[in-house]
Write a protein that binds this DNA or RNA. Sequence first.
DNA 1: AGAATGACTTGCTCCAAGGGAG
DNA 2: CTCCCTTGGAGCAAGTCATTCT
Length: 609
Amino acid sequence: MLKHVLSLAAWSPCPSHAQIPPASLQRFLTFNAMRIHAACRNAKTWKIRWEEEQHANGVKWQQLEHRGPYFAPPYERLPRGVSFYYNGKPMRLSPATEEIATFYAKMLDHDYTRKAIFKKNFFCDWTEQMTSEERKKIKQLDKCDFREIHDYFVERQEAQKALPKEEKQKLKKEAERIQEEYGYCTIDGHREKIGNFKTEPPGLFRGRGDHPKMGRVKKRIMPEDVIINCSKGSKIPKPPPGHKWKEVRCDNSVTWLASWTENINGAIKYIMLNPSSKLKGEKDWQKYEIARCLKGVVGKIRAQYRADWKSKEMKKRQRSVALYFIDKLALRAGNEKEEGETADTVGCCSLRVEHLRLHPRMGGKENVVEFDFLGKDCIRYYNLVPVEKQVFKNLQLFMENKGPGDDLFDRLSTSTLNKHLQDLMEGLTAKVFRTYNASITLQEQLDALTNEDDNVSAKLLSYNRANRAVAILCNHQRATPKTFEKSMQNLQAKINVKRDQLCDAKLELKKAKADSRCKRDVKSKAALEKKQKHVEKLEEQLEKLVLQATDKEENKQIALGTSKLNYLDPRISVAWCKRFCVPIEKIFNKTQREKFAWAIDMADEDFVF
DNA sequence: AGAATGACTTGCTCCAAGGGAG
DNA sequence: CTCCCTTGGAGCAAGTCATTCT
């Protein structure tokens, strides 16, 4: 009860409360505001509440004050002894040309510098920045020798690592100071952490996969590029001496504090709040509430798209099959992309004929669809999926008279699909299916896999397995860590040692038993108990190690982080922890607990997604 | 209608800090 | 205490989707 009273007081607009509460209290209060909000759900729908409370006119905040971005340090020239060579001869470069040369030099060991497109783009952009004399001289990249510059940076990095303790302390202190000064803002009277308060440093653009723009020069961001967003009455951040902001505006319908346009794709980059902030937390919560709404209507929606598989309208048929994929396989929507501007990747709506193969019969199954395409971040999606007869027939129809490069769903776009979804349920879009299916899968898997009588380590393995099921569904992959084999061997070695120890301990226990039986005194009995305990402890440790090894092996190429952070309603995990007496720290680390503070505060053990 | 723009979420990789084993 | 390995978190690219422009 007291909690509620406190929270209301703290969130009242009274300016006397506008000082900063201690972080923990602040968090507590913040999320209690949402708990009250949650309690209102019964009276009015949550949807109506949002619109009334905070989204009226798209207003996200009343007051916002911050220090502006922290800029990347200016370029420092190379020492005289470190030189660039052209055609074997040392050459002193102009500052701008030299700076770009160092970007390339630093990457010499990387595979990127072996790719033709990377080299071509780099050389093209580099040449553009050169003085006319430099341009006349430097004609070919193969004649450029960056090795000395490269070695210089390697050495410098090593020197940095080898710095004495006090020096490192000093650097750390300085970083903390910067974080303290630039890393926080005040929003509606509350001090909140900023997510990314530094501008991106200049360098060479590295796309993922076969990106046509890899190697292009990312320009240095200057205050003159930056738009500041803050509230009218607040202290406007000062630009660095001698500089001006591009613009200072006051737009409280958006959540960013500063922005600039990046020169490679012309995209806008933003400085925004940390996930631990109230603003982000509420947004996250809303996302899961929409997904929970889908739970209520998904049966109906499924029935409808199945019916549409037989529609006379081609558009509807395509839409219904696409939606089936999005629902069943958790595919992304798949917006169109500008050709030649980005790597060639696809999602559901942008699938092409070449990305599927139809197998009427395969491996004892009928109507198997073989998917093979590059998805977001050029991660391969490969899956063999038996589908309903009608879907299979439709796919054959969609692929008729088309070349491999033609769109599978030529009558469908993400915007028409999303418009349709919006009609089925307010707030419904393609990506809600991913959130919904991920969260519901976690819940089902946890129910199926958790054994109440297990110890904590075994329960954790169950949790990770449930998490893994979701990651597999969402195709969240990772490169096998470079040290994987080695650390697996280490773990195995540890297990072997533990086994031997246990064996020895058991032997000793036997001896102690015999000894105690024969002597029947207090001392030998105590010794026996001690040995007994030792064996139990070792058994427990061994089991834990074996579980760890299993978990590690199963997780070799699967990334759990993305689903944990973005797709799984944290309240499911919180409830599971409470129900099975697993400390929340075992599931969520500090950062995750901060991000999910709302859920930790809100969910009790019988929360159901 | 559909292209362009803007805002915000999602996603993977890399690397240094720090924690545990020896 | 040192070393080594794991993990946290920074970094930033690349998606989604609504809105605005033409």
